[in-house]
Design a protein around this nucleic acid. Structure first.
Ligand SMILES: [Zn+2]
Ligand SMILES: [Zn+2]
Ligand SMILES: [Zn+2]
Ligand SMILES: [Zn+2]
Lengths: 133, 133
DNA sequence: GCCCCTGATGACAATGGTTCCCATGGTTGT
DNA sequence: ACAACCATGGGAACCATTGTCATCAGGGGC
């Protein structure tokens, strides 16, 4: 169970570069398309693998939209939640210390262990709302 | 745009009965299996359709687990969230007025409109934790 | 109760995101 | 440069969910 260092491949660098450039959340397929259009084509399987590896290493965040697609984003470190635009993916990280304590307290009160929570706020950002008139 | 009353079919009654009996969240496929074992077999498509109709009518709640499956449950009315056991589905409804205000405030402050939020707490209930020793 | 219209059903196909498989290629330590 | 051996990618497989459409049955009108 020794932690193996992942290899520094062109594909791994390309995926990381996209995540670095992108501002908001994006799906694996969107990232795959962006790579294709940049001429740095990477196999879809490889995109998925590298994204999963980054999630496992806690280097990026993942969440599911209403359609069940998984979206990825390079976030700041530490526990936080997101305010996400459904149209363009623009994201604002939010911290809610009160919510954290409340969630843990609720679970504890009812004898639940190994507790985690999901909390995301979805909406339409000002720019997308303006362009939708 | 007149609201049409759904027909009172055996299948619709059977699905509703299961939801009435079940305590926690369950997937469409689980409900389909339960119906089969009860001898009240209902087509899988029909299970999905009726569940979707009940969700649209706000008569049941739906949420996604970590695996991306949609789970359904007959809940009390009004806006609330859930503390759900990952192993057995046992569910406790929780209300967090503070969280509601906080989420709306965050979205408003950043100019987001058409806002909704998801908040679920997942864990292992006492019973399941005890039987896993 | 009987008919008829129309919505509901169900077996199967199709969809779509994601994962699996495995032969090939590229990376890294020596 | 060499030789492991991990990573890649193209396609198949997976699996929850949705679509299709011929057939069925609820229930309003009689
Ligand atoms: Zn936007
Ligand atoms: Zn949190
Ligand atoms: Zn449990
Ligand atoms: Zn809420």
């Amino acid at each position: 169970m020794v932690a193996t260092t992942p290899r520094n491949t062109r594909q791994r660098r390309a995926v990381a570069a996209i995540l670095d450039d992108l501002d908001g959340f994006a799906s694996a397929q969107e990232i795959h398309d962006i790579l294709r259009h940049r001429g740095e084509s990477v196999g879809l399987s490889t995109v998925y693998r590298n994204l999963q590896a980054l999630v496992d290493a806690s280097e990026i965040d993942a969440l599911r939209n209403d359609d069940g697609e998984v979206l990825y984003r390079q976030c700041s470190t530490g526990h936080h939640h997101h305010l996400v635009c459904r149209a363009c993916g623009r994201t604002i990280e939010v911290a809610g210390p009160t919510v954290e304590r409340w969630a843990d307290g609720v679970a504890d009160k009812h004898g639940f262990v190994d507790v985690a929570h999901t909390l995301e706020i979805f909406g339409t950002c000002g720019a997308c709302a303006a362009s939708a008139d």
